[in-house]
């Protein structure tokens, strides 16, 4: 039963889902259904995409609506920090 429901939801996402754009790159992320449920917003269809939800900043002050946006992290590219910053117990 659960599998059937999931398959139906996925099919509904393909047909009725809203296009989600990555605000960092401007590229489409995929399609998703946004379903209000018990005071939360359930998002269906982005299970293979890694997105961060945040409210969009406003260039013009607006009280009556705000935009919820989605963006991705860039590819991990952090420097090696071990030599410069070894923990105290490993330095001696």
């Amino acid at each position: 039963m659960k599998k059937i429901l999931l398959a139906l939801l996925k099919a509904a996402t393909v047909v009725f889902g809203a296009r989600v754009i990555d605000q960092r790159t401007g590229k489409p992320v995929g399609k998703a259904l946004f379903i209000p449920w018990r005071g939360k917003l359930r998002i269906i269809g982005l299970e293979d995409k890694r997105v961060i939800a945040s409210f969009e900043s406003q260039q013009r002050l607006t009280y009556w609506n705000q935009a919820l946006t989605f963006s991705t992290h860039p590819e991990p590219d952090f420097p090696h920090e071990r030599k410069a910053n070894d923990p105290p117990d490993a330095s001696g």
């Binding site: 982005l46 890694r50 997105v51 991705t72 992290h73 590819e75 991990p76």
Partner: peptide
């Protein structure tokens, strides 16, 4: 120092 496949940053994401 380490190489891996499908590496991604996931904090704050879904």
């Amino acid at each position: 120092d380490v190489l891996g496949c499908r590496l991604e940053r996931v904090d704050g994401t879904n």
